[in-house]
């Protein structure tokens, strides 16, 4: 539908813009994890080829646990910066409150 009734403002102020991008990051996190942990699929099933060409389990462990630590760190960073429900539902932004009249004088 071309017209959305509850349209959110076209541009956000800097803080809520940051929040939105953090939410995006939080949503992307499992995709990042799944992609990184899908890399072992490329290592081959070990069915053919000689032993020397195959990935050793010690290296595999270092890789998988390394990814794990990175994911934990990133998630922690993102989670602690995300505000609660700040923009869900799409914010019916509060009326912009200017300075009280006469404050500038």
């Amino acid at each position: 539908m071309a017209m959305r009734p509850k349209s959110s403002p076209l541009f956000l102020e800097r803080r809520s813009y940051r929040q939105r991008r953090l939410m995006d990051a939080a949503r992307l996190m499992p995709i990042l994890g799944a992609t990184l942990w899908a890399v072992p699929l490329l290592w081959g099933d070990g069915g053919q080829g000689d032993a020397g060409a195959r990935m050793s389990n010690s290296n595999a462990m270092v890789y998988i646990f390394g990814v794990w630590v990175v994911l934990v760190g990133l998630t922690m960073w993102v989670s602690l910066r995300l505000k609660d429900d700040s923009a869900e539902p799409p914010s019916t932004s509060p009326p912009r409150q200017g300075p009280p009249p006469g404050a500038a004088q």
């Binding site: 899908a38 072992p40 699929l41 290592w43 081959g44 099933d45 070990g46 032993a51 195959r54 990935m55 050793s56 389990n57 010690s58 595999a60 462990m61």
Partner: peptide, 18 residues
């Protein structure tokens, strides 16, 4: 030790992994 053990190599069925 891990590299010298019976489970030293990455032997994984991709289907099982995923």
């Amino acid at each position: 030790k891990i590299d010298a053990s019976p489970i030293r190599t990455w032997q994984m069925d991709g289907g099982r992994w995923a």
